[in-house]
Amino acid sequence: MTRLSIEKVNIVLVGSFNPTIFHPAWFDANELVSGEADHSNDQTFLATQEIAQFKLPNQISIRVFKNKFIAETSYESSVQMLIDLVVGTFQLLVHTPVSAVGINLENTYENIPADTWKSMGGIVAPKDTWYKTYSYMEDLDQQKQDVFGLWSQTMKIPRCDEYEGSIFHQMSVVDVPNRCLKVSINNDLNCNRDQNNAESALSIIQDGAEKIISETKCNARRFMEELGVSL
């Protein structure tokens, strides 16, 4: 039976950041988290001028580059805390220039039934075009023909809500033997260009993140149903 093995939610801010200020102790000092996470066993901990990467309580991980701030969780019960944390962080750092926000879902499905695995590529990318383009394929033996298939696909989809931006819906094969598929849905949201700070991003996240995440989860579920995958 198909299993949704990973469901990650992340909030990404695009702008200009100073990774050196982001540290578990900073979040603790500003009372944004309940106690500083013990990072002595955190194999991913990084603190440099270019990158900050660490884990916080409530299963939230943070990565900050000079042009991106990323807060992520793969625990459903931590999603609201993730939103609160990002809002709290940029209420304190409101003068940070932020040009766009990404509110993203990344689902990994494994053990998709073999017959569905074979047919679902044809649903989103019909084979005819490819067989006509690479006309020699029909003459290949079955073993070689079995290599043919959808590897990744990204669709740009307009939004229907009040936010400016688009949805990028991506599917990609992660692991062929385990018939593992990753579906990433990125809600790219533009910030108010007149403001050179984080206020517009804060409004989007504070007022819209929860609803956007909930709708994105519905879209991911509907997409898998369209592919013929029942969970």
């Binding site: 194999q43 440099t48 270019e50 990609s172």
Partner: peptide
């Protein structure tokens, strides 16, 4: 690159950046 986890991505970024030795020592798990 498909299948890379977050750590790999940060690691590759780190490898391409000119850090001082002290900064490299300050990082854990690289």
């Amino acid at each position: 690159i498909r299948g890379e986890n977050d750590f790999d991505l940060a690691q590759r970024q780190l490898d391409k950046t000119n850090f001082s030795e002290q900064e490299r020592r300050n990082t854990i798990g690289h």
